[in-house]
């Protein structure tokens, strides 16, 4: 870990004013501190944002609003979340451990870095960490890597469970920087790696996520997050599915489907949703999930697994069909 300056601002404008290109914002610290110890990131300045007024979990007419500093565990247990959006609560509770969920913030969760072992080991090349050095995952240890949205430069998965659920629900993030405030759908916020895997999202230097907004979806009460992994807890997804269905007389009239553990970004599946809306069987719809997948030597099983994860979620929500 390199030496760094440390600042503890008390309001948002102070925090934004302090931020420089080589700054990092510290919320729960559950990703940042790890990566600093590993020297994967070495910010010159760390700005502790925990005293900023970025709190609150409020249902409002335009949707559920969650302050960026709310902790994962608190959000998962909140009645405004667990009742109307079970998929969010389940995604959060399938993440990390209670200790980590008590520390980790919602904003930080959306910005957590990939668990790719090459990214986290500075002794190895990695285009995401050190642009232009190469991607050993293409031919190396890649059982956990992505099959969707990959490039020759990077096949790292986006690790957040929450982001998968939020993308399915068409959530937005509110961003604030020195130049002002803007709001953007979370699905547009993340960037596939292409030739620039070090650029992971549209956040500008010095900009903060201040809030997450989940629009109303009356039938989101019938939603489910299926997370598949080797052990039952404390592991990132091999594949996951966030699914919500609008069910009438046992028929799926509408659906939202996004998957995790398989994409370089949280992966919405409009083709699967269309097929379900068109009355196709669960199996036919799920079969469209891995369209365009580019599996590597160690992760071809994810092509099947992601379809099964969707099928499992659909069966649990709507019965077999």
């Amino acid at each position: 870990m390199r030496a760094f300056d440390f600042a503890v601002p008390h309001d948002i404008d102070d925090a934004l004013g302090l931020a420089r290109d080589e700054s990092a914002f510290l919320a729960g610290g559950t990703t940042l501190v790890d990566l600093m110890k590993l020297e994967v990131v070495s910010p010159e300045q760390v700005i502790d944002i925990n005293r900023l007024p970025l709190h609150g979990i409020r249902p409002e007419p335009d949707g559920l609003r969650v302050g960026a500093l709310e902790r994962m565990e608190d959000v998962a247990r909140h009645p405004a979340v667990a009742g109307p959006y079970p998929v969010i609560a389940q995604a959060l509770l399938a993440s990390a451990s209670p200790q980590l969920r008590n520390m980790a913030s919602i904003g930080g969760n959306l910005l957590q870095r990939t668990r790719c072992g090459y990214f986290r080991d500075v002794a190895t090349p990695c285009n995401k960490r050190s642009p232009g050095t190469g991607c050993p995952a293409q031919h190396g240890d890649n059982r956990g890597h992505a099959i969707l949205g990959t490039s020759a430069s990077c096949a790292a998965t986006h690790p957040s469970d929450l982001a998968v659920a939020l993308v399915a629900l068409e959530a937005s993030v509110r961003l604030r920087g020195a130049d002002g405030e803007r709001t953007m759908p979370l699905a547009d916020f993340y960037l596939p790696p292409g030739d620039t895997p070090h650029v992971e999202n549209r956040l500008r230097p010095g900009e903060l996520i201040t809030e997450v907004i989940v629009p109303p979806l009356p039938w989101a009460g019938r939603s489910r997050y299926v997370k598949v992994r080797d052990r039952q807890s404390y592991e990132f997804a091999l594949a996951s599915a966030a699914v919500a269905v609008d069910l009438h007389d046992g028929e799926v009239r509408d659906a939202r489907v996004a998957v995790g553990g398989v994409g370089t970004v949280p992966w919405r599946l409009p083709a699967v949703e269309d097929a379900l809306r068109a009355g196709r069987s669960h199996e036919e719809a799920a079969a469209l999930a891995a369209a365009g997948a580019r599996p590597l030597a160690g992760n071809a099983f994810k092509v099947t697994l992601v379809q099964r994860a969707i099928l499992r979620a659909l069966t649990e929500l709507a019965g077999p069909r």
Partner: peptide, 24 residues
């Protein structure tokens, strides 16, 4: 897991080398 090209362990961390947790 041993990387055949490099001889490096591919999952030599407590997060990646899986042992059971309580729920297992």
């Amino acid at each position: 897991r041993i990387e055949p090209d490099t001889g490096r362990f591919g999952n030599a961390t407590m997060a990646d080398y899986l042992v059971p947790v309580n729920t297992d």
